[in-house]
Design a binder for these strands. Structure first.
Lengths: 208, 208
DNA sequence: GCCAAACTGTCATTAGCTGACAAGTGGCGT
DNA sequence: ACGCCACTTGTCAGCTAATGACAGTTTGGC
C-alpha cells in the first residue's frame, strides 16, 4: 500500500512493535503484572514514548477490539439494504470474527487468541473493552438508525438493536470461556445471534 | 434493625460518611477531578482508611449500582414462578428503579440522581459499572437458569436473557441522557423492556 | 545545506493503590 | 476493674500509571 514517508513507516513500525511486545508480555505474565516500562524496554523506547502511541495500558490490549468494531461497521454498511437489521448485523459480526480467526483483513489470529484469553482472565480489561464498545455504540446505532429509517437520537430502537448485538457477542465470549477455549468463537457468535433471532420469531425460545 | 456492637455501628457510619462526601464532591467537581485525599479529608480519616472500605475510587461511586443489582435479584426471586422470564425481569427492574427514584427500600433518591449524572458524563465510570454488572451477571443468569429450568453453565440462553435485560437498562440510561435529565428513568426502563417484549412477539418492531 | 516540523528522551510531578508496622479502641472473660 | 485479644486506624514507604515541560535529534521540503 502506502510507502509515504520514512517517518510515517517508522512510526507504524514502533506502533506494531509496541503492540507485539505488549501482547507477548501479557500472554506470559498476565495483564496486571506487566508494566509499561517492560513493554517500552522490550521495544527500546522510553516509557514516555509509549504514551505518545497509546493513552493507557488498556488501549494497547484493546486496539484490536476497536479495529474489530471499525471493520464491523464497514461490513454492515455494505450489506444489502433490504436485509432485516438483525440479520445484517448477524452476518457482519460473524464475518468479522471469522476474519480474526483466519487472519484475514489484516487481522492477526494469534493476537486475537491472546485477547480472548486476556478478556476472560482480566475483568478490569473486560470493563475497558466495554468503554471502547460504548464509544462505538453511538456510531453503530446511527448506522442502524439509517437502515431502519428512523432517527437514532429520538428513537431508542437503534440503540437497543446495537446493544443487543453486542450482547450476543458477549454471550459468545462467555460461552467460549465455558469450553476452556477449544471452540470456534465465530460459531458461538453465530449461535448467539441465532438464538436472538429465533427468540424474536418464536418467543418460546427465550421467554419461558 | 441491628444495633449489634459499637464498633460495627462506627464502621457503618464512616462508610456512609465516605459515600456521602464522595457523592457531594463528585457532584460539585466531577468524578475525575475529585481525589481520594479530598474524600478522606472531608470525613476526617486517612486516605489509607478509604481503601479499607473501598478498593477503588470507582467502587464508591458504584456501590449503589451493586446494591441495585442485589435488590433486583431479590425481587426477581420473589416473582411468581409461572411468569415468563422476561416479564419477571421487566417488572423487577422497573420496581428497583422506582424504589431508587422514590427513596424506598433504603435507597437514597439524591444519590441516585447524582449517579445518573455521573454515568452520563464519565465514560470511565460507565465502563466500570459494566464491570460491576458483569460480576453480577453470572449470578443473575444462574437465577434465570433456574427459572427457565435449564443449566446456566451449558445453556447460553440464561446468560443471553440476563444481558439483554441489562441492555434494556443501558438503553434507558442512554435515552435519559438524550432528554437532558428531565424524564423519569423508571418509565424509560419500562419502555425499553416493552420494546424488547414487543420485538419478540411482533418481530417487525425490531427487525426491519 | 538549512529551517521548520515532527519525534523522542529526560526530568519532575500528581494520583491511585498496596504492604508493613505501630498505636489506639472496643469486646469479653476473669 | 483489670487485662488480654482482636479489630480498626494512622503513618510511612514505595510502586505503577499518567501527564506536562523542556531540550535534543531526526526527517522532509526548499
Amino acid at each position: 500500500m502506502t510507502a509515504a514517508g520514512l517517518r510515517e513507516r517508522k512510526k507504524q513500525r514502533t506502533r506494531c512493535a509496541l503492540i507485539d511486545s505488549a501482547f507477548a508480555l501479557f500472554r506470559r505474565k498476565g495483564f496486571d503484572a506487566t508494566t509499561i516500562d517492560e513493554i517500552a524496554e522490550a521495544v527500546d523506547v522510553s516509557p514516555r514514548t509509549f504514551f505518545r502511541y497509546f493513552t493507557s495500558k488498556e488501549e494497547v490490549a484493546l486496539s484490536l477490539v476497536d479495529e474489530q468494531l471499525g471493520v464491523l461497521m464497514g461490513l454492515l454498511a455494505e450489506r444489502p439494504a433490504d436485509e432485516p437489521v438483525l440479520t445484517a448485523l448477524h452476518r457482519a459480526a460473524v464475518d468479522v470474527v471469522r476474519a480474526c480467526e483466519s487472519g484475514a483483513n489484516g487481522f492477526d489470529a494469534e493476537h486475537y487468541e491472546s485477547m480472548q484469553e486476556l478478556l476472560a482472565t482480566s475483568p478490569a480489561l473486560a470493563a475497558h473493552s466495554m468503554e471502547v464498545g460504548s464509544a462505538r455504540v453511538a456510531e453503530l446505532s446511527r448506522l442502524i438508525g439509517v437502515r431502519m429509517g428512523v432517527d437514532h437520537l429520538t428513537d431508542p430502537r437503534p440503540h437497543l438493536v446495537a446493544s443487543i448485538g453486542i450482547c450476543a457477542v458477549q454471550t459468545a465470549v462467555n460461552s467460549w470461556r465455558g469450553t476452556d477455549g477449544h471452540a470456534k468463537s465465530s460459531e458461538l457468535v453465530d449461535r448467539a445471534f441465532q438464538l436472538i433471532t429465533e427468540g424474536i420469531n418464536y418467543p418460546s425460545v427465550l421467554t419461558p
